[in-house]
Amino acid sequence: MELFNKSGALIASVLVMVGALIACQAKEGTVPPASEIEAVAQRLGAHGGAAAERRLREWAEQGSVVAKRELGMLYQNKTPQRGEAMRLFEEAARAGDAESAFQLAEMYHRAADGTGHEPEKAWPLYVQAAEHRHPKATLRLASLARNGSDEAARWLAGAGLK
């Protein structure tokens, strides 16, 4: 009986996701608000689904910065798609998305794993995100700056942590 309840819950959640996608497709050619894109991405992360991923890709191709960021988040930990994640984050960061700038900076910062990217590329991206009040970027800048330096103090003051 417990198996039936779990299966029923899974089927119900998939049907809700499919319904949301159908509703979005009814407005073909329009990009939904950021909150709707993020909700689809969250369901995709929780349950997977080629249809949801395809829809995010369509929105990204239509120019949605949020869809690019969410696809990047989906791909960043998948080795074959890391390059695509970096490209998506870069496009979204250029459009002013602070979270994308931070995520791309994190990928560069961790890139000492032989991927061919230089961790030095992370600094300007952290700065971009911190200038848009991204708290983790601000803290990362402070930790990367020399301990006790004026620059570290400036970033910590910007985060309200001095």
Rank of each mutant, 00 (worst) to 15 (best):
E2S: 13
E2M: 10
E2C: 05
K6A: 13
S7N: 09
G8I: 10
A9Y: 09
I11F: 12
G19E: 12
G19L: 14
L21F: 12
E28F: 13
V31Q: 02
V31G: 06
V31F: 00
V31T: 10
P33H: 05
A34S: 12
A34I: 04
A34Y: 00
S35Y: 01
E36S: 06
E36Q: 12
A41C: 05
Q42D: 11
R43K: 07
R43I: 08
L44H: 03
G45Y: 10
G45H: 13
H47P: 00
R54A: 00
R54G: 02
W59D: 02
A60H: 01
E61V: 04
G63L: 04
V65D: 06
V65M: 03
V66K: 06
R69T: 10
E70P: 08
L71Y: 00
M73I: 14
M73L: 15
L74V: 09
T79A: 13
P80N: 08
Q81H: 08
Q81M: 14
E91R: 05
D97Q: 09
E99L: 01
S100F: 00
Q103E: 15
L104Y: 13
A105K: 02
E106V: 14
M107T: 00
H109C: 08
H109F: 14
A111K: 07
A112E: 09
G114R: 07
G114W: 08
T115L: 14
T115I: 13
G116N: 13
H117W: 12
H117Y: 12
E120Q: 11
W123V: 15
W123L: 11
V127D: 07
A129V: 07
A129E: 02
A129D: 05
A130L: 15
E131T: 11
E131W: 04
R133Q: 14
K136D: 14
K136Y: 10
R140W: 11
A142T: 10
A145Q: 08
R146K: 15
N147M: 14
D150E: 14
A153S: 11
L156H: 01
G158W: 06
A159G: 09
L161G: 02
K162Y: 10
